[in-house]
Simulated assay, not measured.
Amino acid sequence: MDQLSIHVQLTNHPKEKPAFDQLSFGTVFTDHMFTMDYTEGKGWHDAKVVPYKPITLDPAAIVFHYGQTVFEGLKAYVTQEDEVLLFRPDENMKRLNRSNERLCMPAFDEELALAGLRKLIQIDKDWIPNVEGTSLYIRPFIFATQPYLGVAPSKTYRFMIILSPVGAYYKEGINPVRIAVESEFVRAVKGGTGSAKTAGNYAGAMKAQEVAEAKGYSQVLWLDGKEHKYIEEVGAMNVFFKINGEVVTPSLNGSILEGITRKSVIELLQHWDIPVTERQISMEELFEAYESGLLEEAFGTGTAAVISPIGELFWQDKKLVVNHGEIGELSKKIYDTMTGIQTGKLPDPFEWRMKVEL
């Protein structure tokens, strides 16, 4: 199915656009949204772009009671030549389908979803901010709609994409953040839903973040749910450490989300011939590297922030100040290169960008 198969209904009441130099994250939404529905026996149908508006669901809809919902996050950028670029959107759609599979939800046509996204961006192109550091955040999501209180997969679903012009994710910007190593709560365990991008993972993580923020920390560093000693993620991001010249990131183990930015950073480091290893790493090993002066940099990676340098880790009443609390040389190089590729300011030797024809 191509874009000609996507019905379009334009709004009669366009919204006032915000000042692009005063954007926060995820509070303003564009004029339109993409939707399509799934019915068992019929498959996905009724793909359309319609005015952004509230949705109506039966109070017994399965999503409210058993949490059958998955989502993604990616961005669109406008270049200095007024071209619109997406960053690896095919990878996001693949991961969304992997999340679907884990939650017993039906697979969708990834090409149709990308066509719907392109059509939506074409319609709302004037919402893409052109101020340095801004972008158009894209949120595809799918949820169960069948009204049923029995514990079973839904027979009906809705797929939606909404758009939001955004500024920087962290108020600190690219400056290093302070992170508390979580000692009580866990994000996910192997065999659970940690490798899927589903709402419950984030709801369950909020308590630990709330406690950390009350102590003056931006986020938490998650440890594994079994032995509570191996590093997994930082907040809602993947995490990397530069130790004695080698970059180490926790290997995918069934409880860690396979980040698109994570994958891109690994490929970028390999392209630069910088040693990068995916393996299990304990908090004890990291502390020993810090004590030995070998922990050189630490940073999180994710769509929203791209790169978030870690300036301090708080673990067992000890403060590990990384690189004097300043952004590391490699972290800055990765950030500048990734954002340069995303915004069209730098060449794209990896063919990560997808141009949206306007």
Rank of each mutant, 00 (worst) to 15 (best):
Q9H: 08
Q9I: 02
T11H: 09
N12D: 13
N12I: 00
K15Y: 11
P18W: 11
D21Y: 06
Q22S: 09
T27R: 12
F29T: 01
M33C: 10
T35R: 15
G41R: 07
G43A: 03
K48Q: 14
L57V: 07
T69P: 00
F71M: 08
K75D: 06
V78D: 01
V84T: 14
F87C: 05
D90C: 00
F108M: 05
E110I: 00
E110A: 03
E110F: 00
L114N: 09
A115M: 03
D124N: 14
P129C: 11
V131C: 08
E132W: 10
G150I: 02
V151G: 02
A152I: 04
P153Q: 13
Y157H: 14
Y157P: 05
I162N: 06
E172D: 09
V177A: 03
I179R: 08
E182V: 02
E184T: 09
V186S: 14
R187N: 06
R187D: 04
A188I: 04
V189P: 00
K190C: 02
N201K: 12
G204Y: 09
A208R: 11
V211L: 12
K215M: 10
G216T: 10
V220E: 09
K229R: 15
E233M: 13
V234K: 12
G235W: 08
N238W: 13
F241H: 11
G245S: 13
E246K: 15
P250Q: 14
S251F: 06
S251P: 00
N253K: 10
S255A: 15
I256S: 12
L257I: 06
V265H: 05
V265T: 12
H271L: 00
W272N: 04
P275G: 08
Q280T: 12
I281A: 04
E285N: 08
L286C: 10
E291V: 15
T303F: 09
I307G: 04
I307K: 09
I307Y: 05
I310C: 13
G311N: 14
E312C: 10
L313K: 04
L313A: 03
W315R: 11
K318Y: 06
N323M: 05
G325Y: 07
I327D: 01
G328R: 12
G328A: 11
G328Y: 11
E329I: 12
L330A: 06
Y335L: 12
T339E: 03
G340S: 10
G340N: 11
T343W: 04
D348S: 10
M354R: 15
